[in-house]
Protein backbone atom coordinates (compact mmCIF):
# COMPACT_ATOMS: atom_id res chain seq x y z
CA UNK A 1 0.00 0.00 0.00
CA UNK A 2 2.85 2.37 0.87
CA UNK A 3 4.50 1.76 -2.48
CA UNK A 4 1.19 2.42 -4.21
CA UNK A 5 0.69 5.60 -2.21
CA UNK A 6 4.14 6.83 -3.23
CA UNK A 7 3.53 5.98 -6.86
CA UNK A 8 0.11 7.60 -6.83
CA UNK A 9 1.50 10.76 -5.16
CA UNK A 10 4.28 11.04 -7.71
CA UNK A 11 1.67 10.71 -10.44
CA UNK A 12 -0.38 13.46 -8.75
CA UNK A 13 2.61 15.82 -8.69
CA UNK A 14 3.47 15.18 -12.34
CA UNK A 15 -0.17 15.78 -13.31
CA UNK A 16 -0.14 19.04 -11.40
CA UNK A 17 2.99 20.31 -13.15
CA UNK A 18 1.71 19.25 -16.57
CA UNK A 19 -1.71 20.79 -15.96
CA UNK A 20 -0.08 24.00 -14.75
CA UNK A 21 2.13 24.24 -17.85
CA UNK A 22 -0.86 23.56 -20.08
CA UNK A 23 -2.96 26.23 -18.39
CA UNK A 24 -0.16 28.73 -18.69
CA UNK A 25 0.34 28.02 -22.39
CA UNK A 26 -3.36 28.00 -23.29
CA UNK A 27 -3.90 31.39 -21.70
CA UNK A 28 -0.88 32.79 -23.54
CA UNK A 29 -2.28 31.47 -26.82
CA UNK A 30 -5.34 33.68 -26.48
CA UNK A 31 -5.23 36.73 -28.72
CA UNK A 32 -4.63 40.12 -27.15
CA UNK A 33 -2.17 41.39 -24.59
CA UNK A 34 -3.24 41.26 -20.94
CA UNK A 35 -1.55 44.65 -20.55
CA UNK A 36 -4.56 46.17 -22.31
CA UNK A 37 -6.60 45.84 -19.15
CA UNK A 38 -4.30 48.34 -17.45
CA UNK A 39 -4.69 50.99 -20.10
CA UNK A 40 -7.24 53.58 -20.96
CA UNK A 41 -8.33 53.97 -24.55
CA UNK A 42 -5.92 56.04 -26.61
CA UNK A 43 -2.86 55.04 -24.56
CA UNK A 44 0.50 56.09 -25.97
CA UNK A 45 3.09 53.46 -27.03
CA UNK A 46 5.17 54.44 -23.98
CA UNK A 47 2.23 53.74 -21.67
CA UNK A 48 1.65 50.39 -23.38
CA UNK A 49 5.32 49.47 -22.96
CA UNK A 50 5.21 50.49 -19.30
CA UNK A 51 2.12 48.39 -18.70
CA UNK A 52 3.72 45.39 -20.40
CA UNK A 53 6.81 45.79 -18.23
CA UNK A 54 4.66 46.04 -15.14
CA UNK A 55 2.90 42.73 -15.72
CA UNK A 56 5.83 41.05 -17.44
CA UNK A 57 4.18 40.33 -20.79
CA UNK A 58 7.25 41.82 -22.55
CA UNK A 59 9.40 38.90 -21.30
CA UNK A 60 10.04 35.75 -23.36
CA UNK A 61 7.53 32.98 -22.75
CA UNK A 62 10.00 30.72 -20.94
CA UNK A 63 11.03 33.49 -18.54
CA UNK A 64 7.37 34.25 -17.87
CA UNK A 65 6.71 30.58 -17.19
CA UNK A 66 9.63 30.18 -14.78
CA UNK A 67 8.61 33.21 -12.80
CA UNK A 68 5.00 32.08 -12.77
CA UNK A 69 5.91 28.53 -11.71
CA UNK A 70 8.11 29.99 -8.96
CA UNK A 71 5.20 32.05 -7.67
CA UNK A 72 2.92 29.02 -7.81
CA UNK A 73 5.41 26.89 -5.88
CA UNK A 74 5.46 29.51 -3.14
CA UNK A 75 1.63 29.57 -3.25
CA UNK A 76 1.57 33.14 -4.55
CA UNK A 77 -1.24 33.47 -7.10
CA UNK A 78 -0.39 37.07 -7.94
CA UNK A 79 -2.43 40.24 -7.92
CA UNK A 80 -5.57 40.94 -9.90
CA UNK A 81 -5.02 43.40 -12.77
CA UNK A 82 -8.43 44.94 -12.41
CA UNK A 83 -9.22 44.61 -8.71
CA UNK A 84 -5.63 45.38 -7.59
CA UNK A 85 -5.86 42.85 -4.77
CA UNK A 86 -4.02 39.53 -4.20
CA UNK A 87 -5.84 36.67 -5.90
CA UNK A 88 -5.11 33.99 -3.26
CA UNK A 89 -7.10 35.47 -0.35
CA UNK A 90 -9.89 36.40 -2.74
CA UNK A 91 -10.17 32.78 -3.91
CA UNK A 92 -10.13 31.63 -0.29
CA UNK A 93 -13.03 33.99 0.44
CA UNK A 94 -14.99 32.54 -2.48
CA UNK A 95 -14.28 28.94 -1.43
CA UNK A 96 -16.24 29.66 1.74
CA UNK A 97 -19.29 29.54 -0.53
CA UNK A 98 -18.27 27.12 -3.25
CA UNK A 99 -16.85 24.29 -1.10
CA UNK A 100 -19.91 23.94 1.18
CA UNK A 101 -22.14 24.28 -1.87
CA UNK A 102 -20.31 21.47 -3.64
CA UNK A 103 -20.02 19.14 -0.68
CA UNK A 104 -23.59 19.58 0.51
CA UNK A 105 -24.93 19.05 -3.01
CA UNK A 106 -22.78 15.96 -3.36
CA UNK A 107 -23.92 14.55 -0.05
CA UNK A 108 -27.57 15.16 -0.84
CA UNK A 109 -27.15 13.68 -4.31
CA UNK A 110 -25.63 10.49 -2.88
CA UNK A 111 -28.34 10.23 -0.23
CA UNK A 112 -30.93 10.53 -2.96
CA UNK A 113 -29.27 8.41 -5.60
CA UNK A 114 -28.21 5.35 -3.62
CA UNK A 115 -31.62 4.31 -2.28
CA UNK A 116 -33.46 5.35 -5.44
CA UNK A 117 -30.93 3.62 -7.68
CA UNK A 118 -31.09 0.52 -5.55
CA UNK A 119 -34.87 0.38 -5.60
CA UNK A 120 -34.90 1.03 -9.35
CA UNK A 121 -32.64 -2.00 -9.81
CA UNK A 122 -34.16 -4.32 -7.24
CA UNK A 123 -37.68 -3.59 -8.46
CA UNK A 124 -36.81 -3.16 -12.11
CA UNK A 125 -39.72 -5.45 -12.96
CA UNK A 126 -42.26 -3.34 -11.11
CA UNK A 127 -43.88 -0.21 -12.48
CA UNK A 128 -42.17 2.11 -9.96
CA UNK A 129 -38.78 0.63 -10.66
CA UNK A 130 -39.24 1.44 -14.31
CA UNK A 131 -40.63 4.86 -13.47
CA UNK A 132 -37.61 5.73 -11.29
CA UNK A 133 -35.24 4.60 -14.03
CA UNK A 134 -37.15 6.66 -16.55
CA UNK A 135 -37.24 9.75 -14.36
CA UNK A 136 -33.49 9.62 -13.90
CA UNK A 137 -33.08 9.51 -17.69
CA UNK A 138 -35.28 12.57 -17.97
CA UNK A 139 -33.33 14.30 -15.20
CA UNK A 140 -30.12 14.07 -17.17
CA UNK A 141 -31.69 15.98 -20.03
CA UNK A 142 -32.79 18.93 -17.86
CA UNK A 143 -30.26 21.76 -17.54
CA UNK A 144 -29.31 22.93 -14.05
CA UNK A 145 -30.23 26.57 -14.59
CA UNK A 146 -33.76 25.59 -15.55
CA UNK A 147 -34.23 23.56 -12.38
CA UNK A 148 -32.76 26.49 -10.45
CA UNK A 149 -35.24 28.92 -11.96
CA UNK A 150 -38.10 26.52 -11.31
CA UNK A 151 -37.13 26.12 -7.65
CA UNK A 152 -36.82 29.91 -7.30
CA UNK A 153 -40.26 30.47 -8.78
CA UNK A 154 -41.90 27.91 -6.53
CA UNK A 155 -40.00 28.14 -3.24
CA UNK A 156 -38.78 31.73 -3.25
CA UNK A 157 -41.21 33.83 -5.27
CA UNK A 158 -44.45 31.99 -4.46
CA UNK A 159 -44.04 30.16 -1.18
CA UNK A 160 -41.42 32.59 0.21
CA UNK A 161 -39.70 29.73 2.04
CA UNK A 162 -36.16 30.49 0.91
CA UNK A 163 -34.33 33.53 -0.43
CA UNK A 164 -34.20 33.79 -4.22
CA UNK A 165 -30.46 34.29 -4.14
CA UNK A 166 -27.52 35.87 -2.43
CA UNK A 167 -25.39 34.86 0.55
CA UNK A 168 -25.21 36.45 4.04
CA UNK A 169 -22.80 39.37 4.24
CA UNK A 170 -21.19 37.86 7.32
CA UNK A 171 -20.74 34.45 5.63
CA UNK A 172 -21.13 31.64 8.18
CA UNK A 173 -21.46 33.81 11.31
CA UNK A 174 -25.05 32.60 11.44
CA UNK A 175 -24.93 29.04 10.06
CA UNK A 176 -28.71 28.77 9.83
CA UNK A 177 -28.78 31.88 7.66
CA UNK A 178 -26.03 30.58 5.42
CA UNK A 179 -27.69 27.18 5.09
CA UNK A 180 -31.00 28.79 4.16
CA UNK A 181 -29.25 30.69 1.39
CA UNK A 182 -27.67 27.50 0.13
CA UNK A 183 -30.84 25.38 0.32
CA UNK A 184 -32.14 26.01 -3.20
CA UNK A 185 -28.75 25.98 -4.96
CA UNK A 186 -27.86 22.73 -3.17
CA UNK A 187 -31.20 21.20 -4.16
CA UNK A 188 -30.62 22.29 -7.76
CA UNK A 189 -27.21 20.73 -8.08
CA UNK A 190 -28.21 17.63 -6.13
CA UNK A 191 -31.23 16.98 -8.35
CA UNK A 192 -29.21 17.26 -11.53
CA UNK A 193 -26.35 15.23 -10.15
CA UNK A 194 -28.46 12.47 -8.64
CA UNK A 195 -30.14 11.88 -11.99
CA UNK A 196 -26.94 10.52 -13.47
CA UNK A 197 -25.83 8.89 -10.22
CA UNK A 198 -29.08 6.94 -10.01
CA UNK A 199 -28.29 5.35 -13.35
CA UNK A 200 -24.84 4.23 -12.19
CA UNK A 201 -26.14 2.89 -8.89
CA UNK A 202 -28.94 1.12 -10.71
CA UNK A 203 -26.71 -0.60 -13.23
CA UNK A 204 -24.06 -1.47 -10.61
CA UNK A 205 -26.80 -3.02 -8.45
CA UNK A 206 -28.24 -4.92 -11.41
CA UNK A 207 -24.81 -6.41 -12.09
CA UNK A 208 -24.50 -7.56 -8.52
CA UNK A 209 -28.04 -8.96 -8.43
CA UNK A 210 -27.22 -11.05 -11.49
CA UNK A 211 -23.91 -12.27 -10.14
CA UNK A 212 -23.04 -15.90 -9.45
CA UNK A 213 -21.47 -15.20 -6.08
CA UNK A 214 -24.65 -13.64 -4.75
CA UNK A 215 -26.69 -16.60 -5.93
CA UNK A 216 -24.17 -19.00 -4.34
CA UNK A 217 -24.23 -17.15 -1.06
CA UNK A 218 -28.01 -17.22 -1.07
CA UNK A 219 -27.94 -20.94 -1.90
CA UNK A 220 -25.80 -21.46 1.18
CA UNK A 221 -28.71 -20.20 3.22
CA UNK A 222 -27.85 -16.57 3.73
CA UNK A 223 -30.69 -14.06 3.78
CA UNK A 224 -30.89 -11.54 0.97
CA UNK A 225 -30.09 -8.47 3.12
CA UNK A 226 -27.10 -10.27 4.62
CA UNK A 227 -25.87 -11.36 1.22
CA UNK A 228 -26.19 -7.85 -0.12
CA UNK A 229 -24.46 -6.38 2.91
CA UNK A 230 -21.54 -8.84 3.01
CA UNK A 231 -20.86 -9.09 -0.70
CA UNK A 232 -23.18 -7.08 -2.87
CA UNK A 233 -22.60 -3.61 -1.47
CA UNK A 234 -18.84 -3.71 -1.72
CA UNK A 235 -18.89 -4.98 -5.24
CA UNK A 236 -21.48 -2.47 -6.34
CA UNK A 237 -19.59 0.35 -4.64
CA UNK A 238 -16.40 -0.04 -6.69
CA UNK A 239 -17.63 1.41 -10.00
CA UNK A 240 -19.87 3.90 -8.17
CA UNK A 241 -16.96 5.36 -6.20
CA UNK A 242 -14.94 6.10 -9.29
CA UNK A 243 -17.98 7.77 -10.84
CA UNK A 244 -18.52 9.69 -7.60
CA UNK A 245 -15.03 11.12 -7.89
CA UNK A 246 -15.74 12.38 -11.39
CA UNK A 247 -19.16 13.65 -10.37
CA UNK A 248 -17.79 15.59 -7.42
CA UNK A 249 -15.28 17.28 -9.68
CA UNK A 250 -18.03 18.10 -12.18
CA UNK A 251 -20.18 19.59 -9.44
CA UNK A 252 -17.33 21.80 -8.34
CA UNK A 253 -16.95 23.15 -11.86
CA UNK A 254 -20.68 23.14 -12.59
CA UNK A 255 -21.25 25.51 -9.67
CA UNK A 256 -20.46 28.33 -12.13
CA UNK A 257 -23.92 28.23 -13.66
CA UNK A 258 -25.79 27.71 -10.43
CA UNK A 259 -23.90 30.47 -8.64
CA UNK A 260 -24.91 32.88 -11.34
CA UNK A 261 -28.60 31.91 -11.17
CA UNK A 262 -28.59 32.30 -7.39
CA UNK A 263 -26.27 35.33 -7.25
CA UNK A 264 -23.84 33.49 -4.97
CA UNK A 265 -20.40 35.07 -4.48
CA UNK A 266 -18.52 31.85 -5.18
CA UNK A 267 -15.60 30.79 -7.30
CA UNK A 268 -17.77 30.40 -10.39
CA UNK A 269 -19.01 33.97 -10.46
CA UNK A 270 -15.45 35.15 -9.82
CA UNK A 271 -14.24 33.15 -12.82
CA UNK A 272 -16.94 34.55 -15.10
CA UNK A 273 -16.10 38.10 -14.05
CA UNK A 274 -12.36 37.47 -14.46
CA UNK A 275 -12.90 36.24 -18.01
CA UNK A 276 -15.11 39.22 -18.83
CA UNK A 277 -12.42 41.59 -17.60
CA UNK A 278 -9.46 39.72 -19.13
CA UNK A 279 -8.03 39.52 -15.64
CA UNK A 280 -5.37 36.85 -16.24
CA UNK A 281 -4.12 36.38 -12.66
CA UNK A 282 -7.70 35.78 -11.52
CA UNK A 283 -8.43 33.27 -14.30
CA UNK A 284 -5.11 31.47 -13.78
CA UNK A 285 -5.55 31.39 -10.02
CA UNK A 286 -9.01 29.88 -10.19
CA UNK A 287 -8.02 27.34 -12.82
CA UNK A 288 -4.97 26.28 -10.82
CA UNK A 289 -6.99 25.90 -7.63
CA UNK A 290 -9.80 24.00 -9.34
CA UNK A 291 -7.38 21.79 -11.24
CA UNK A 292 -5.70 21.00 -7.94
CA UNK A 293 -9.06 20.21 -6.36
CA UNK A 294 -10.09 17.94 -9.22
CA UNK A 295 -6.79 16.04 -9.14
CA UNK A 296 -7.06 15.65 -5.36
CA UNK A 297 -10.58 14.31 -5.66
CA UNK A 298 -9.37 11.77 -8.21
CA UNK A 299 -6.56 10.83 -5.86
CA UNK A 300 -8.97 10.33 -2.97
CA UNK A 301 -11.39 8.32 -5.12
CA UNK A 302 -8.58 5.98 -6.17
CA UNK A 303 -7.54 5.43 -2.57
CA UNK A 304 -11.08 4.71 -1.45
CA UNK A 305 -11.51 2.26 -4.30
CA UNK A 306 -8.44 0.33 -3.21
CA UNK A 307 -9.68 0.23 0.36
CA UNK A 308 -12.99 -1.21 -0.76
CA UNK A 309 -11.66 -3.66 -3.30
CA UNK A 310 -8.92 -6.01 -2.10
CA UNK A 311 -8.35 -7.21 -5.69
CA UNK A 312 -6.87 -3.82 -6.55
CA UNK A 313 -4.50 -4.00 -3.58
CA UNK A 314 -3.29 -7.49 -4.31
CA UNK A 315 -0.42 -6.78 -6.65
CA UNK A 316 1.59 -4.21 -4.78
CA UNK A 317 1.37 -5.05 -1.08
Amino acid sequence: MTAYLLRRTAFLLVSLVLAGALLFLLLRLLPGDPANSLLSVGATPEQIAAARRQIGSDQPLLAQFTSWAGDMASLDLGESFVGKVPVGPEIAARLVVTVPLTLLSFLLAVLLAVPVGYVAARRADRWYGTLLGGLSQLGIAVPAFWIGMLLITVFALNLRLFPAGGFPRDDWADPADALTSLALPVATIALVMSASLIRYVRSATLDVLDSDYLRTFRALGSSFPRAMWRHGLRNAAVPVVSILGIELATTFLGAVVVESVFALPGLGSMLVKGIEEHDYPVIQGILVVSTFAVLMIGFAADLVQRLIDPRLRGGSS
Binding site: M149, A156, G165, S260, V261, A263
Partner: peptide, 11 residues
Amino acid sequence: YFTEATALNNA
Protein backbone atom coordinates in the same frame (compact mmCIF):
# COMPACT_ATOMS: atom_id res chain seq x y z
CA TYR B 1 -24.53 43.17 -6.94
CA PHE B 2 -26.00 40.80 -9.49
CA THR B 3 -24.70 39.52 -12.79
CA GLU B 4 -28.15 38.60 -14.08
CA ALA B 5 -31.14 40.89 -14.43
CA THR B 6 -33.48 38.02 -13.51
CA ALA B 7 -31.72 37.37 -10.22
CA LEU B 8 -31.86 41.09 -9.48
CA ASN B 9 -35.60 41.26 -10.16
CA ASN B 10 -36.17 38.17 -8.00
CA ALA B 11 -34.37 39.91 -5.15
